[in-house]
Measured scan of single mutants.
Amino acid sequence: NSLAEAKVLANRELDKYGVSDYYKNLINNAKTVEGVKALIDEILA
């Protein structure tokens, strides 16, 4: 998966839960796919 794909999928996942734009910005600023995954795990914990 590319970083861009990971960000799109992460933001879709956040949308399902009604997560605020603050967290979407964190996702969009992530530098690695692993970073995106770690943020998602933390946000949805």
Rank of each mutant, 00 (worst) to 15 (best):
N1H: 12
N1R: 14
S2C: 04
L3F: 02
L3E: 01
A4I: 10
A4N: 07
E5A: 12
E5P: 02
E5Y: 06
E5D: 12
A6S: 09
A6P: 00
K7T: 02
V8T: 14
V8K: 14
V8S: 14
L9C: 14
L9T: 15
L9R: 15
A10V: 03
A10T: 00
N11H: 13
N11Q: 15
N11C: 09
N11F: 14
R12D: 12
R12G: 11
R12S: 14
R12K: 15
E13N: 04
E13D: 05
E13L: 15
L14F: 03
L14Y: 01
L14N: 02
K16Y: 07
K16E: 05
K16C: 05
K16L: 07
K16M: 07
Y17N: 07
Y17L: 13
G18F: 09
G18R: 06
G18T: 06
V19R: 05
S20V: 04
S20L: 06
D21V: 04
D21S: 07
Y22M: 08
Y23K: 02
Y23R: 02
K24R: 13
K24I: 07
K24V: 06
N25T: 13
N25V: 08
N25P: 03
N25Y: 09
N25D: 15
L26K: 07
L26M: 10
I27Q: 00
N28Y: 05
N28K: 09
N29V: 09
N29W: 05
A30R: 03
A30P: 01
A30Q: 09
T32W: 01
T32K: 01
T32G: 02
V33R: 03
E34A: 12
E34V: 05
E34K: 07
E34W: 04
E34F: 04
G35Y: 11
G35I: 14
G35V: 14
G35E: 15
V36T: 01
V36F: 03
V36Q: 00
K37N: 10
K37P: 00
K37G: 04
K37V: 07
K37Q: 12
K37I: 11
K37F: 12
A38W: 09
A38T: 10
A38F: 11
A38H: 08
L39K: 02
L39M: 08
L39Y: 03
L39P: 00
I40Q: 06
I40A: 08
I40T: 08
I40D: 00
E42D: 08
E42G: 10
E42P: 02
E42C: 15
I43P: 00
I43A: 10
I43F: 13
I43D: 00
I43L: 06
L44Y: 04
L44P: 01
L44C: 03
A45Q: 12
A45K: 15
A45H: 10
